[in-house]
Nucleic acid binder design. Structure first.
Lengths: 217, 217, 217, 217
DNA sequence: GATGAATGAGCATTCATTCAT
DNA sequence: AATGAATGAATGCTCATTCAT
């Protein structure tokens, strides 16, 4: 039993190493430009070996997404255990999300990739995709739960449908992060030059905006 | 001089026709899958002729972006002439944006494409990109102006930096539209199945959320 | 009209040139081992150009088959116009076939390739495949016609079904050629070393055997 | 000595098991598509183990050929012991061959494979190939013997060279079987649809044709 | 002996761009 | 100006074979 365990551990470690290598390549070359050759080289493995651990390039990408969503959920779910009201929970969950994305931009790209390919039936059946789905649902559950708590403790207006509000917040957060990242690019849109802002002030403003928007008076 | 003018008109018309054709192809095949061959065929032109009017495929895509941002600006700028307070203006501008995107999903994709390639030096300086820049700045100006009006007429809290608030609203709107489009895909993320919502209710909820969030009490 | 004709001629010539080049590569490397790279190089064309003229590698192979079957049919159909009895016709058609194959072994390989892939639905729809089918049917018609003539002029026993007999002769001829080619290989089966025979004597013996077999006494 | 004998028996049994497994995989996937992975899985062995028993994938394929030719020889050699004239012997040997092939199509494919690779020097030296050679020579001997008997008992014309006639019959039989198998494919050549025939009638016709062809009047 | 993880050469195909006519 | 034939770089994936354990 110990032997099996070691082997499985090694296999899992190799998987993780490939994911690591892929993330490095993505950092260097960009998400779309990464090739299996480069990933293999970065991982110091033969190209064929990649296919022992992942069905396809897409699978690796989905595994990145899976890992990212798991980490994100861990971060966000902690908020639910705090002794604060629902509104504050929502705000802190938002904060968690935004911080996580800021620190892990590759996962952000991976999440967007996931959303962009998930309608191609072929990939919807990969194991990684299924796990990503579960994680997405869990993330959604976390935020909806916080909203429901807020509605019950009268910190959040109950004029919204909790799930719909959750989606709105999710989407809006994503969009704000997207803007924030734009400014970090070498040749970003010049319109962004005219606005003085930091990641932090943008996030703070956003949370204040929607926090106030949903706050029960 | 008239002859030149006619010639130039024809040239411009040809340009527009190519953009039209490209958008048709994108509708049929998708943004990434569109090929220069298909565009040429759809435009009833030789493939080489496309290059007489556009430097590259990217240029055509940027031209779509340019056209879209121009149309969007026309739509949003009308709001500024209305006899309403600033908060209402911001809400109506948001509404305009969301409606425009809903009706013209291709432009939405084009905008996102623009943002994704603009840090590659090669493209950052193309004519189309420069025009897109201008349009983006104009769009930004429109929303910032509305916010400033709202702050002056006391309909919007003045605790935000107008430009930063403008960015936040812009980003958040984009993100919400992104979510809304996800649900329309054949096999979208299953988490979306669990939420009942229409494009309209999502948009309405979003505007209500940020409208209340910035409203001066 | 002349212009079009010239262009089409050139296009056709290029197609033929690619087929020629492919046959040369097959001669050098073998049927299965030939690659698109080598074919392109042999044809002194870019690899992409091959795909302007053929949908796929399979298409080229089928085009070889098409060309071969057309040539073979031309050769075999001449026999039908001769003033000889049916049995002699069958014998001469067989002779034509065997000579053709002997002189054009690549076509023989191509025919066998065609037979081996034709059950994969994908290829059954290529233009080349359809033409091959027609040619095969025509070939069959030629031999069946000769048999029918022989049965009418009492040179061939009428105890066989003409079509079935045609198939048997076709198959048997193919098999005999197969054997004959084996001996030409560098390291052929050693059993063949023990038999002294030439292509010609084998063919002669075979035709005599089946000629006598179907002859009406 | 007994221990060695047991070990060798086991080794031999393992070899046979691998051949069995390979044939099963070929049945499922096809001759070309079978992979070492699948074979190992089917044999419930590690992939590396296959290489303890066979030098290469080709060796396994040749071993199938070897086994098939041995079985075929057993079947055909029985005819020689019968108290019938030579012509009848040849006919029954042909019948045996055709029946064997019909019942064991995989061996037929393997025989053809053997013939197709045997000129590549590398493989000509493998043990399996040598055994196949011997079996082929034995098969040839059987049929030539029958022909010689027929010539001596005046049932077969002596105008042919016995060995050459043997080769012709062998080749022709192969070709007829080839045709017969073609019709069993899902999407076979359409020309075959026009001919009504069964395996049996084809075989019967063929034997009648060549039987008559070689019969001494 | 048995294993199976690792290997990497090999290959068909796509498509934006060019340029001779 | 208009064309479209030609180009060739670029890339994901397979699978027989090896070898360290």
């Amino acid at each position: 039993m110990k032997k099996i365990s070691r082997k499985e551990k090694e296999k899992l470690a190799r998987r993780e190493a490939i994911i690591d290598a892929t993330m490095h390549v993505i950092e260097k070359r960009g998400f779309e430009a990464a090739t299996m050759d480069e990933i293999a080289e970065e991982a110091e493995l033969g190209k064929g070996t990649l296919y022992l651990h992942f069905k396809s390039k897409v699978s690796i990408y989905l595994a990145i997404c899976e890992r990212g969503s798991k980490l994100l959920n861990q971060s966000m779910s902690k908020v639910l255990t705090k002794d604060i009201n629902g509104l504050k929970m929502v705000e802190e969950i938002g904060q968690s999300y935004l911080e996580f994305i800021q620190l892990n931009p590759i996962y952000f790209v991976a999440f967007n990739y996931y959303e962009s390919i998930i309608d191609e039936d072929v990939y919807a059946e990969s194991d990684e995709a299924l796990q990503c789905e579960e994680n997405a649902q869990q993330a959604m559950t976390i935020i909806v739960r916080a909203i429901q708590i807020g509605m019950q403790d009268n910190s959040i207006k109950d004029i919204f449908d909790p799930k719909e509000l959750g989606l709105i917040i999710w989407g809006a957060s994503k969009g704000v992060m997207h803007i924030a990242f734009l400014k970090e690019k070498k040749n970003h849109m010049r319109v962004l030059d005219e606005v003085e802002f930091s990641f932090e002030s943008l996030v703070k403003g956003f949370i204040q905006l929607i926090g106030t928007g949903m706050k029960k008076l």
